[in-house]
Amino acid sequence: MLAGVMGGIARRFGWSSTLLRVIFVIVSIASAAFPGILVYLILWLLMPDEADAA
């Protein structure tokens, strides 16, 4: 919802964006080895904008 990272991934693979966001948050909270914020920021920087991808 912030930068469209999870929504973009969900749209690309045909998954539910809400479900993907919930799974991402649960995995981020449950695992100290999975730095969710860092991964999200990296994906935000690396993924093209929707206008660029079209």
Rank of each mutant, 00 (worst) to 15 (best):
M1C: 04
M1P: 12
L2K: 06
G4K: 02
V5Y: 01
V5E: 03
V5L: 01
M6N: 08
M6R: 07
G7A: 00
G7Y: 01
G7D: 08
G7Q: 05
I9Q: 06
I9T: 05
I9H: 06
A10C: 02
A10H: 03
A10D: 06
A10V: 03
R11D: 14
R11F: 00
R11A: 13
R11Q: 11
R11W: 00
R11G: 02
F13K: 13
F13A: 09
F13N: 09
G14R: 08
G14W: 03
W15A: 15
S16E: 14
S16P: 08
S16G: 12
S16F: 03
S16H: 10
S17D: 15
S17G: 07
S17A: 15
T18R: 13
L19T: 15
L19K: 15
L20H: 08
L20G: 07
L20S: 11
R21N: 15
V22G: 08
I23M: 12
I23K: 10
I23D: 07
F24R: 07
F24A: 14
F24I: 05
F24Q: 12
V25R: 11
I26D: 13
I26Q: 14
V27Y: 14
S28H: 09
S28E: 09
I29H: 08
A30I: 03
S31C: 08
S31L: 09
A32Y: 04
A32G: 12
F34S: 05
F34L: 12
F34N: 07
F34G: 12
P35K: 06
P35H: 09
P35D: 14
P35R: 05
G36W: 04
I37W: 12
L38G: 05
V39T: 13
Y40M: 07
Y40R: 11
L41R: 10
I42H: 02
I42A: 13
I42T: 10
I42F: 04
L43I: 00
L45C: 04
M47I: 03
M47C: 01
P48T: 01
P48V: 00
P48S: 04
D49W: 01
D49Y: 01
E50G: 06
E50V: 06
E50D: 15
D52M: 03
D52R: 04
A53F: 09
A53T: 11
A54R: 14
A54S: 11
A54H: 12
A54Q: 14
